[in-house]
Amino acid sequence: MSKEREKLISDAVEKAIAGDMDAINNIEDRVVRSKAKAALAKAKRLQKDGSSPDADLSGSDVPTVSNAPSENPNRMFGDRINQKFPGSLDGDLKDTHIQLKPDQWNDIAIWLKTEDDMLFDSLQCITGMDMGEDILEARYNLHSMKYRFAIEIRIAIPKNKAEIPSIEQVWRIGDWFERETYDMYGISFSGHTDLRRILLPDDWEGWPLRKDYEVQETYHGIVVPKVKEGWE
């Protein structure tokens, strides 16, 4: 990256931290803008000093209450997961989601699906997320057809060791959802029986939805056209 670009990014990030998000949003070059956003996320994370990586994206305003019984399904089931699998929660309970560590995820998934008073039998969606410079996240939206509960589970992992236990055999749709997340973010789901790209060609390079993805210049000798100026 050239000096000029770096300076542009650091200036924009400084302004954004001061409250002026336009400084970043007005950057015309798409790649630079996404880099600036990643740098901003990192800077904010450092500022907050070890708080959870998505603190700047969501849930940060929600006050955390520890282990108080509550109507909110994310709190209620987060609490129960914590009792059944001590040490599996990553951070405090929140209203919006349950943040888990990856280690026991497969066991938790089986338990959530089969426990008689929850029966989360429907995996709605797996969303991959690039949280900033070196954190990736997978978000699972679960739904119980019988009791009509809906919860969201998030698992954050570092980019250099992007590995989450697969739940392919728990919810069968997990197979394709995990392949899609792998395809776009390069998160490898350990234990998946057939983990390969699903939407992109098998020989595609890079993980397109990561924020630091740079479009390849050629593909099988075909020149990839540059994004035109003034696209937006």
């Binding site: 994206l57 969303t127 978000r139």
Partner: peptide
């Protein structure tokens, strides 16, 4: 505002869900 939402609706083909993440800018984060 900053935050995320998962919302689904019934289309002719079934549950269509959108997971939208906003970072407070006019461009979606995800």
């Amino acid at each position: 505002p900053k935050g995320s939402i998962y919302k689904r609706t019934e289309t002719p083909r079934g549950d269509l869900g959108y997971y939208i993440v906003s970072d407070g800018s006019p461009v979606p984060y995800r």
